[in-house]
Amino acid sequence: MTRILLLAALAVVALAAPFFVYPILLMTILCFMVFASSFNLLLGYAGLLCFGHAMFFGTGAYIGGWLMKEGGFSIELAFAATTLAMAALGWVVGLISARRGGIQFAMITLAISQFVYFLLLRAPFTHGEDGLQRIPRSDLFGVIDVSSNLSLYYLILAISVAAIWFFYRIVHSPFGEVLRAIRDNEGRVESLGFVPERFKIVALTLSAGLAGLAGAMKASVYQIATLHDLSFHVSGTIIFMALLGGLGTMAGPMVGAALIVMLNDHLAQFGEWALIIQGTVFLVVILFFRRGLVGELQAFIRRRSAKA
């Protein structure tokens, strides 16, 4: 019952929010919530540190943007095609990296992301350092105008809710249980008769698809796709978001994403000091909230209910 009330309250807040908060900021939060969830699926649930996760986000932004600008795709088709394309890229990355774990997996994904970065830098359709600009907000189903910030917000909200629901279904399925078991003890999972790398490849495929969707949504929000979206800086930021909120919790990385986006928005006026403040926050979280904010809150509630 409490859960239903909480979800209802969240729904009311989400629906009313654009009338009180700048919709672009809200949409950025939603995009990064989906992106952070995709990262959480890998690191939080499967124990796979993808050090170049921004490759899916940034490439998704380019592909989604290009499909809307040059391909004449309606916005939902562009999002769907981008999701599938990034899932395919994730599958390829999985084939290359899934036999490895730990730091080797992290380094392989970082290397591939750097490769993709330079590939896109050279590709003519990305316009190099200038980025893909003036991406149109194509009509929904070819007929519904979503060019205003308000109408686009509700579209992005609906897609984000669907994406997060999809993520929820994955981690609460038997497949999600196997992923968590792989994170706990991969060798043991294999000795039970599973093939862990197959699960890791599927996890990477799903995660990459979600990250690509987030990137395409961001491209439609800002109407630009740039190399920054797939830079190492963005990969690092998503790790920070996940750690801040709490890895392996459903809501943690999403809360982390929302906090970091808002923090960056508020700190923008301080120029480079923003990075120093962000670093300090990171240090405080690592030292005092090792489970992340949501993780610590959950642990606190568990302790309270155990005492009661």
Binding site: E177, R180, A181, R183, D184, N185, R188, S191, G248
Partner: peptide, 10 residues
């Protein structure tokens, strides 16, 4: 196995 290897998060 000797260490039982119960999955801690399940």
């Amino acid at each position: 196995p000797e260490e039982r290897a119960i999955f801690s998060s399940l």
